[in-house]
Simulated scan of single mutants.
Amino acid sequence: MKKIPYASSTDILGYIALSEEAELVVQCDAPPLEVITQLNQAECYIDLGHFFAHALPMREAIWWCIQAMRLRQPDWSREEAKLIDDCERWVREPNEGQRRRIESQLEAMKDDSAPKWLGQAVFWSGTGSIAPVDNPVVMPVEYLYAKAVAGAVNTAAVIPEWPSKEKGHRKYYQGAFQIALDIANGGAGTVKQGGDVCHALLD
């Protein structure tokens, strides 16, 4: 995979606390595509969300998260939809002013808001300090953004609740993972979902 060019998944998995179910099926030294297949077949979807979030480069991981949020576009409030749009603008043209504007929107949102965790991923992206403005610079720990990406993707799988919980949950994850695979293979993140096409236009 062009964007996950590792012969072994050992280093990626070193940053992830796998569930007991995932530990039973994953071969840590296997290539990433094999681990992705193992986790998907075992329906260890939360673990697979963490795997993609840590395996993709930072910008691509956040772009994946944006497109995963788009799969639930009708479910977001106006404030959440605006935040997703602002995060997309940041990925296209990263700048400190936009990153700080995204930060300013987070405090008013609930912790169970998936778009909030997307915004947190942008703020923790490692492109600037996470301390208040005018304070000494404090950079985030490695892969902190990836934890927020995984949190957003996995939260969106269950909140807001689906009319048909099991069907919606599975459909969402499979759509999100198709997007992640497309990006991992160097694509733009385009996937058919429920008859619609989600277009990701990452340059």
Rank of each mutant, 00 (worst) to 15 (best):
I130A: 02
E103T: 10
A146G: 08
M139P: 03
V137N: 02
R100W: 09
I102R: 07
G119H: 03
M109F: 02
V137E: 11
L144A: 13
S104G: 05
A114V: 06
E103H: 14
P136Q: 12
K116P: 10
I130K: 00
V141R: 14
R101Q: 14
M139E: 11
S125K: 05
D111T: 08
E103N: 15
L144C: 02
Y145V: 01
L106Y: 03
A108D: 12
A121N: 03
V138R: 15
G126R: 12
S129D: 00
R100M: 10
S104Y: 05
Y143G: 00
W124D: 15
S125C: 13
S113E: 07
N135S: 12
E142C: 00
L106A: 02
R100A: 06
D134H: 15
T127R: 15
W124V: 03
R100P: 04
E142K: 13
Y143E: 01
W124T: 08
M139L: 15
Y145D: 08
Q105M: 14
A121F: 01
D112P: 03
Q105A: 15
A121I: 05
D111V: 06
S104V: 01
K110V: 04
S104P: 03
I130R: 03
I130F: 01
R101A: 14
V137S: 09
V122H: 07
Y145K: 03
M139W: 12
V137Y: 04
M139D: 08
L106W: 04
A108S: 15
S104H: 11
K110G: 14
V122M: 01
I102T: 11
